[in-house]
């Protein structure tokens, strides 16, 4: 099996709080893994450990078979890992175009080094996510849904092999969610492997090849979406356990 990402016994402790507790999973190349769990389950922490925004306490992360968990975040980006942030982090003072151009200038190794070419690239990605009408505006002039699209375009411009999406659909209306799902599927068809954190169950069911459920930092279930969502433990975590 060709795994692009392998996470083994990954643990993250914030002083007394065990945020991620010995989580192990693998992501096959060209697949979409849905990461779900109640609030505070550790989903974003797990993504941050893979992207390098946080360093793990224990355990290892392997990207294309090589350990990366001790590398700085920017090195992982150069290797081909891109992420979006749930709390969006645009470059507020730059235009939408230049926000994405930063991704094209840096990002995975072999990215373009010339500003003009990077801006051209950025234009293409903005068209891809449907933001072409706001290219010249400052990023802080964008509303919520457009900021989500911008986050996605910035990550895509980095030409990643692995894309980590942290709630890119939160706050979108059903029509917008449909659009984003189409975009994510198109991205996968380009050969990019994806981890999606999402609360919109319908979206994640239709997108994911596999699901992984976190609860209190532990993996409580993993497998095909239909199976996982029938799992008693998962239902208990989300809805509380049945009275006996």
């Amino acid at each position: 099996m060709d795994n692009i990402l392998e996470v083994r016994n990954l643990t993250k402790r914030f002083h007394g709080l065990l945020a991620i507790d010995r989580v192990t999973f693998a992501l096959e190349r060209n697949q979409i893994l849905g990461l779900i769990g109640p609030n505070g389950a550790g989903k974003t922490t797990l993504v941050s450990l893979v992207s390098g925004t946080l360093q793990p306490t224990e355990g290892s992360v392997l990207f294309e078979g090589k350990p990366i968990h001790r590398l700085a975040g920017f090195r992982r980006a150069l290797l081909g890992i891109a992420r979006t942030f749930q709390v969006m982090r645009p470059f507020p003072g730059l235009t939408v175009l230049d926000n994405v151009a930063v991704g094209a200038l840096f990002g995975a190794a072999g990215s373009t080094r010339q500003l003009a070419a990077a801006r051209e690239d950025a234009n293409r990605w903005l068209h891809f996510v449907g933001l072409d009408h706001r290219v010249r505006q400052r990023a802080d002039a964008l509303g919520g849904p457009d900021r989500k699209r911008l986050e996605l375009a910035k990550a895509l411009a980095m030409r990643p092999k692995l894309l980590l999406l942290d709630e890119v659909m939160a706050g979108l209306n059903p029509v917008e969610i449909e659009e984003v799902i189409t975009v994510i599927k198109k991205v996968r068809d380009q050969g990019i492997s994806i981890v999606v954190i999402e609360h919109v169950m319908k979206a994640i069911q239709s997108l994911s090849d596999r699901l992984l459920v976190l609860h209190h930092g532990e993996k409580i279930a993993e497998g095909k979406p239909q199976e996982v969502l029938r799992n008693d433990q998962v239902i208990a975590a989300y809805l509380g356990s049945k009275r006996r």
Binding site: F74, P90, P92, L94, G103, F106
Partner: peptide, 25 residues
């Protein structure tokens, strides 16, 4: 107008995001 300068501007605008996008901050 350079890649270096865009790295600096990215750091100014949001350092965490800049690092995630591959800038050696």
């Amino acid at each position: 107008r350079s890649r270096f300068g865009f790295g600096l501007i990215a750091i100014r605008e949001n350092e965490v995001a800049a690092a995630v996008m591959g800038v050696n901050t």
